[in-house]
Every structure is written in structure tokens, then in C-alpha cells.
Design a protein around this nucleic acid. Structure first.
Length: 446
RNA sequence: UGGGAGGUCGUCUAACGGUAGGACGGCGGACUCUGGAUCCGCUGGUGGAGGUUCGAGUCCUCCCCUCCCAGCCA
């Protein structure tokens, strides 16, 4: 049986690094196994689901290069659960309840104040036909709960090893809302069963859900998939990600922070695993190194600083072809490989703009200039210039003026670029050109 | 409160009950020098208290801290 994994985000907000890490891990798992990566938008919550969030999810996955083999919306599958629901009702596993949300809140509050867990008391199970008839006559409509077996639920988790829950410690979940809408707990099982999902890899916040859903899989006669629950990511201070999203959305990392997709992927594929976090330029490399057994059980912290450092390292490694598009968008001109070579130690592609200004726009004149620069200007070779020009020229200046080391190079750098630091002048000089170089050495704005 | 999980250098992790190691960061040095690149070195840790043991990060007891679930959300 070929591997099939679902990634099922709900389009109720922007994807954050925690969500997309799960997408990446699922994708890596599927690709490593030669299986299918299936995306399902869990948009059954009509109030909170928004089309723009659905688009955002597609955009984020595409940006990262996480190709899917199927893209579906739960809302297009209304009716898919009807048959299953009818069967569960017939067998008595799905039973009607008539409490209002207010009544349920009251029950929970009461139980909590008694120091008891707020588990549903199954009062509706004790209702007779007459009771139900009376309630419906009052205009009440039922919602439907799944009757859990009060037996142990056990599975071997790919990340956590053996997991054990007592059915009696769990609350009978509502599967069908009062308005007839099937809820996530049901739709997800039915979809997984229909698609022959083999592995479900999700956050550990779903642990109790899994215990419940295993019983549902069994009740509907579906094959129970293998489960893996990853620890949730927290931010650098240990706070949960969903609580303080903001800058950690994939969209903001891409559009505001200038993060490269492979920087994010390199970090998220390795964070919380026994592998060292190192820059990788292709997803293929990450697939080759991926092994879910390397994922640890502890909660990893996601540090944006670490991501930015990785971004810088990735940028040093990326060849011109891989950044040309982004570079062009950033500097508004058509950059060249020589320019990419000359640009120094960027953390973000957008920083190249500053160096485009140095090589292709006037640099303001300097107030004071060392006298030897005039002499240096006269020694400037004739064009055409290439990468050897800097060496021959500075050699000549050195011979003529006797200056060397920092006394020689720093004034030249300041005059030519207007800055104390930057990329190798060997690379920059030909891009600046003789005309500008000559004027800048004379202290003119050029 | 009930259920579930977790706690090893600042961070991510490794260690059949047998020298607590690696990676990142930080610090220092080297590269006759753009270094926020690269290379090399150094730094730094088992949440706490008992116990078992020749020997404990690892096993036992108690304690502390953190996270998740306990929705007619997903």
C-alpha cells in the first residue's frame, strides 16, 4: 500500500511557522516514501474560514516548494459523511443530545468547581423516547455525540512510541452540530478513510483527538492509520505560537523579513531533531536526510534570529541564477552575476539595493580626503577593467606612495564606496568604472 | 482539578547503568586583511531533594517548573 499523508490546515488565519513545519514534515515524509502529499482545507467552520486565508495557504506552500498531489476543500465534500453518520446512528454509537450551549457551560463550571474533570455526563443517553419527543415538541433540535467505548485506546506513535488513553477519561465528542453540520472530528476521519490515508502526522495538541478518532475509525470500519504527533513549536521565550503570531507568519517572513524559502525549510526540517541545523539549497537534500525517528519528544523553540542567520548563510551559498529574480525585484534593474559576486555578506536580498547604489549611482563627496588619493587617481589604468585591475592598480599605488595595509586600503575603500566596510574591491571596482572611480578619488560626488 | 506529555550547555540535540559529546550562538585567534565570510581553538549543561548501585542524565520515591487536551472550534 502506498503512503498517503494529509495536511489539513483550516483557513481561519495566516499559516505560521508551526503550521508550515507540519506541512513540511508531512511533505518530506511522503516524498521520502515515494507517496502522496494531500492537502485538505478544513473549512467546515463557516464563520471563521475566509477565502483569502485559503489563498494564503496555497501561496505559502507553493513558495516553499511543497507540491501537492491533491488539493481539496472539506466544504466541497458536504454529504460525504451522511452515510457514515446514518450507520453510526443506527448502531447507537451516535446519540442525540439536547442541551443548549449555556446548559453545557453550566455543567462544566459545576464539575470544575467540584474539582472534577469537565467530562460530558451522558445525561442524554438516559433520555427515553418520550423525553426526546417532548424536547423536540419544544422546538429543540439535537446535536449528536459519539459514544466512546470506556476501554483503553492504544497506539504506537512514530514520534512518541507507545501511547495509552483511557476511554473513560475522555468526553463523548459532538460529531454533528445542531444545524446538521458534521464537525472536524468526523469529517477528518471520513476523509482519511476515503483517501486511504496511511499516516497522520500532526501536532501533539491532537493527542486526545487521536484517541477519540481511533475509536471512530474502528466504528466506521476504516483502516486506522499510523499516527505521529510532533511537539508543538514555541517562540523564543517558550510561548505558544498561536497565541502571539504576528511576525511569525510565513507571509511576513517572506514579505517583510526577506527570508528565502530554503532558509525556512532548512530550519524547520531540522529543528527539534538530532540532525544539526545546516543550510540546504534544495528540498531534495532535506528529503534524503529526513527520518521521522530523528524527531525528539521535547518542545523546540523557534528563534527568528536563528532563521535570519541561516538566511544569510543560504544567501552566501546561492548562485546568481537562484536569486536573479528576487534581486531584480529588489534593485529595479537587471543585475549581473558580477554584481552578485561583489555584494558582501547579505542577510537579506533586499540589502543588495545599498550596493547597487554604490556601483550604479552617485556617492556623495567626502569632506576630507587623504592627499595620496590624487596620485592614486592618476595611476588608474585604462579601461577595460576586469578582476585583475584592482591588484595591478593598488600595486602601482603602493610602489609610488609607499603606503600599505590598512593605511592604503581603507582610504581607497572609503573614497570609492563611501563606506568603511563592504565587499571585495576587486569585484566592486570594475562595476564602479573608471569615470566614477576617478571622480570619487578626487572627492567629487559621482 | 482530571487526562496526556516534557525538563541535558544560552538554543537544538547525543550518551547498552560506565570519560556528559556534537551543532548553532558567544568569546578568542588565524587568514598581510570587507569581515557580520571562511578556518581553528575556547567557553558552557544533566530542574531540586533523597534513595538503589562499585558507578546514575539514565533506575526508584517525593517535590518544582513548562506545555497540550478537557468546544455544537479545528
Amino acid at each position: 500500500m502506498s503512503v498517503a499523508v494529509p495536511f489539513a490546515p483550516s483557513p481561519t488565519g495566516l499559516l505560521h511557522v508551526g503550521n508550515v513545519r507540519l506541512a513540511l514534515v508531512n511533505w518530506l515524509f511522503a516524498r521520502k516514501a515515494g507517496g502522496n502529499f494531500l492537502v485538505r482545507l478544513d473549512d467546515t467552520d463557516e464563520e471563521r474560514s475566509k477565502p483569502e486565508y485559503a489563498e494564503g495557504i496555497e501561496r505559502d506552500l507553493t513558495w516553499l516548494g511543497l507540491t501537492w498531489d491533491r488539493f481539496a476543500r472539506e466544504s466541497d465534500r458536504y454529504g460525504a459523511t451522511d452515510e457514515v453518520a446514518a450507520a453510526l446512528k443506527a448502531s447507537g454509537r451516535l446519540y442525540p443530545c439536547y442541551e443548549t450551549p449555556e446548559e453545557l457551560n453550566l455543567k462544566r463550571a459545576s464539575l470544575s468547581s467540584q474539582g472534577r474533570p469537565p467530562i460530558y455526563d451522558r445525561a442524554a443517553l438516559r433520555l427515553g423516547d418520550a423525553d426526546r419527543a417532548r424536547l423536540e415538541a419544544e422546538g429543540r433540535k439535537p446535536h449528536w455525540r459519539f459514544k466512546l467505548e470506556h476501554t483503553p485506546v492504544e497506539w504506537t506513535d512514530l514520534v512518541r512510541g507507545p501511547v495509552h488513553f483511557e476511554g473513560s477519561a475522555l468526553s463523548d465528542p459532538v460529531l454533528i452540530a445542531e444545524d446538521g453540520r458534521p464537525l472536524y472530528t468526523l469529517t477528518s476521519v471520513v476523509d482519511d478513510a476515503d483517501l486511504a490515508i496511511t499516516h497522520v502526522i500532526r501536532g501533539e495538541d491532537h493527542l486526545a483527538n487521536t484517541a477519540v478518532q481511533i475509536q471512530i475509525f474502528e466504528a466506521v470500519g476504516g483502516a486506522v492509520p499510523v499516527f505521529a504527533h510532533l511537539p508543538l513549536l514555541t517562540d523564543a521565550t517558550g510561548q505558544g505560537l498561536s497565541k502571539r503570531l504576528g511576525s511569525l507568519s510565513v507571509a511576513s517572513l517572506r514579505e517583510e523579513e526577506g527570508i528565502e524559502p530554503m532558509a525556512l525549510a532548512s530550519l524547520l526540517a531540522k529543528l527539534g531533531t538530532s540532525d544539526a541545523i545546516e543550510p540546504r539549497l534544495t528540498l531534495d537534500e532535506l528529503v534524503a536526510e529526513f527520518d521521522i525517528a530523528k524527531v525528539s519528544r521535547a518542545t523546540p523553540k523557534f528563534d527568528p534570529e536563528e532563521l535570519l542567520r541561516l538566511n544569510a548563510r543560504i544567501l552566501h551559498l546561492l548562485p546568481f541564477e537562484r536569486v536573479a529574480g528576487e534581486l531584480a525585484a529588489s534593485v529595479w534593474m537587471m543585475p549581473t552575476p558580477a554584481f552578485w559576486e561583489a555584494v558582501p555578506n547579505l542577510s537579506r536580498v533586499a540589502e543588495a539595493r545599498d550596493w547597487w547604489a554604490v556601483t550604479h549611482a552617485p556617492v556623495a563627496r567626502r569632506r576630507t580626503i587623504p592627499l595620496f588619493l590624487a596620485e592614486a587617481a592618476t595611476l588608474l589604468p585604462k579601461e577595460p577593467w576586469d578582476l585583475s585591475t584592482w591588484g595591478t592598480w593598488t600595486g602601482a599605488v603602493k610602489a609610488k606612495t609607499g603606503r600599505k595595509g590598512k593605511d592604503l586600503f581603507l582610504p581607497l575603500r572609503r573614497a570609492l564606496t563611501g563606506r568603511d566596510h563592504g565587499g571585495q574591491l576587486k569585484n566592486l571596482l570594475p562595476l564602479i568604472g573608471r569615470t566614477r572611480a576617478h571622480k570619487r578619488l578626487a572627492g567629487e560626488t559621482a
